[in-house]
Amino acid sequence: MNKLKTSSNIKCKECGVFTENADYCKNCGALISHKIERELRETAFKKEQIEEAKRALENPNLPTRLMQHPFFLYKIIGWILHSVFLIISAIGALLAWFIAMVAAG
Score class of each variant (00 low, 15 high):
residue 2 N to M: 09
residue 3 K to E: 08
residue 4 L to N: 07
residue 4 L to H: 09
residue 5 K to Y: 06
residue 7 S to D: 15
residue 7 S to M: 14
residue 8 S to C: 10
residue 11 K to L: 11
residue 12 C to N: 00
residue 13 K to C: 08
residue 16 G to A: 07
residue 17 V to G: 10
residue 17 V to D: 12
residue 17 V to H: 15
residue 17 V to F: 15
residue 19 T to E: 02
residue 19 T to C: 04
residue 20 E to K: 12
residue 20 E to Y: 12
residue 24 Y to Q: 03
residue 24 Y to P: 01
residue 25 C to G: 04
residue 25 C to F: 00
residue 27 N to T: 11
residue 27 N to C: 09
residue 28 C to P: 00
residue 29 G to S: 03
residue 29 G to Q: 00
residue 30 A to I: 00
residue 32 I to K: 04
residue 34 H to R: 13
residue 36 I to W: 05
residue 36 I to K: 13
residue 37 E to N: 13
residue 39 E to Y: 09
residue 41 R to I: 08
residue 42 E to L: 15
residue 43 T to D: 12
residue 46 K to L: 03
residue 46 K to A: 14
residue 48 E to A: 15
residue 51 E to I: 10
residue 52 E to S: 09
residue 52 E to R: 11
residue 54 K to G: 04
residue 55 R to T: 04
residue 56 A to S: 11
residue 59 N to P: 03
residue 59 N to G: 05
residue 61 N to P: 06
residue 62 L to F: 09
residue 62 L to T: 00
residue 65 R to G: 01
residue 69 H to K: 00
residue 69 H to P: 01
residue 72 F to Q: 06
residue 73 L to R: 09
residue 73 L to Y: 03
residue 73 L to M: 06
residue 74 Y to R: 01
residue 75 K to H: 05
residue 76 I to Y: 07
residue 78 G to T: 02
residue 79 W to V: 05
residue 79 W to L: 09
residue 80 I to W: 07
residue 80 I to D: 05
residue 81 L to T: 02
residue 81 L to W: 03
residue 83 S to V: 12
residue 85 F to T: 07
residue 85 F to H: 12
residue 86 L to R: 14
residue 87 I to N: 00
residue 89 S to H: 11
residue 89 S to M: 13
residue 94 L to E: 04
residue 95 L to Q: 01
residue 97 W to C: 08
residue 98 F to V: 11
residue 101 M to K: 14
residue 101 M to A: 07
residue 101 M to D: 09
residue 103 A to I: 12
residue 104 A to R: 11
